[in-house]
Write a protein that binds this DNA or RNA. Sequence first.
DNA 1: TTGTATGCGTTATCAT
DNA 2: ATGATAACGCATACAA
Lengths: 330, 330
Amino acid sequence: MTITMKDIAEIVGVSESTVSRAINNKEGVGQETRKEILKVAKKNNFQPNRLAQNLAKQETNVIGLLLPDIASLFYSDVARGVQDYATSQGYQVIVCNTDDDKEQEVNYMNWLQSNKVAGMIFLGGGLVNNQIVKLGLTDYPIVLANRLVEEVPLPSVIIDDTIGALKATEHLLDKGHDRIALLLGPNNSWQAQNRLQGYKRALKNRDIEYDQDLVIHKSWSREGGYQGFLELMELEEPPRAIFAADELMAAGVVEAIKLGGYFIPQDIAVVGFDDTVVTSVIDPPLTTVTRPMYELGERSAKKLLNLINEEEIKEEIEILESELIIREST
Amino acid sequence: MTITMKDIAEIVGVSESTVSRAINNKEGVGQETRKEILKVAKKNNFQPNRLAQNLAKQETNVIGLLLPDIASLFYSDVARGVQDYATSQGYQVIVCNTDDDKEQEVNYMNWLQSNKVAGMIFLGGGLVNNQIVKLGLTDYPIVLANRLVEEVPLPSVIIDDTIGALKATEHLLDKGHDRIALLLGPNNSWQAQNRLQGYKRALKNRDIEYDQDLVIHKSWSREGGYQGFLELMELEEPPRAIFAADELMAAGVVEAIKLGGYFIPQDIAVVGFDDTVVTSVIDPPLTTVTRPMYELGERSAKKLLNLINEEEIKEEIEILESELIIREST
DNA sequence: TTGTATGCGTTATCAT
DNA sequence: ATGATAACGCATACAA
């Protein structure tokens, strides 16, 4: 049913090579012939067979994106960034969900390679495994997005939560607060560590003593935020500023504050983390740290395409900073 | 760098066809030869070139998924369902974001065709345009997911919001409420129409008169829900049960109710719509209508693969029903 | 059991 | 300006 160059050649009465040249806008085809060929092609809705094309050219315009779960709010945003940039440059993206499973990851790596993708982006998922390092080092174009690599450096783009947490804390400091509570998830997580670090650094910059009692680890959830707030209120001198370093926790804190009859920000100021649809259900509009997720995708894609086209890479590791959006909760 | 069958053939000292047979687990290869070939293949990490493979076999194991935006909470869940089912059957998925733009859509359709995908799923995006119908009718495997088609029927899977709304209303009726408010977005939307219809049908089933005053159209947002509640409270006899047919609106309603000093569900019962991360920040846990988004993806993928493999399709149009999850807000 | 030959649809290198 | 031909890597029908 689908028409090929051979067919067109037959119809027009020329050779396949001439058809190929005409279709690909190359030199060396007569005015008339070219017009005729294009006419027939359009009329029959000719679509070149990419499989054959790629096989012959020994290259493709497809890149692979491996991530834990496309259904996650965070990753889907990044994915969109990757896709938009890639397609703007004539590339297509294949998204693979690994669920943080090493085996899945390796499977996909192999599959992508056998499909001769031009390169891959590895998004999230903790540490980089050896296979990736090996692949990336044997000059296969690979970019790491928000993912850590041990020892050997690979081209990567990451978001630094530390800066965001620093900005958030500084903002509250600027508002005149000197006792700022910090709500975090379990302290074994990389995220918690970074955000805590930013918080500490902000305090240190202002010569304010770090008070262990003001830092509370709960679960990354509404309930965690809720309970965290209750704990804070039991302190002798409860804080009047809270940095809830997670959006669900922030929602819980706001909830608890209002239920307690306090006003935001008059009685207690709140800064959250992340700015997704969850934030939109919080009232008052939340001052929050926002991570450039879409941009993370864009930059990663850009870096990968640069790598593929062997253009010069300015910085091996690119660091994006999270921003503070100031709204009405502080 | 990458090894081919030809290379293996040379190393082992057999012909390419023998290598092909061995690699593909086909009959007609001697014990020893096969073992030797596989050994060499494994040692050199041989990956068959899918481009060549697919070109030769004239088929691929890739399907295309066109949707408005992968970064949307709704669509990304569906996409995950498609991917999981597809990969479980040995297929890969290419996701294309169309942003509801007809032109983009057509571009992707062409691109996917020229990549010889085995089939496509069109998710969301309102009415189906003619190009799709044409493509689907000229026996190209196509499945419509939660998308409307005029006149000509195409294999499709849809979620019926009507049923969900009906169940939600019935549930409140069962709880003894006879004056149930309904909060909706702008009434020109397909969603609003369906949910209103389900609501009406539930009332009719119980011979309860439809009261126009109890149905309020606002924006699909927290603010819309909030304002809607305030309007309801101005009625002579405010309702004590509210069906907020959108998750953001539900969040706004709950917010407003609590600020008003009422208790849920003792004073006012609330049923929401959809069950995503947004729901998780609402307290008390919300009774809500949940749409089987993941399943929508799964079923669509399954139908498409059936189509591709020319198995019999039981029902041309498959209707999934939304379910009511009963929690503590009613 | 194994090898030979041909084709898949396109690109690219030669001739002409 | 155009055509013949080989090549891309693999599958497969047909011979041997």
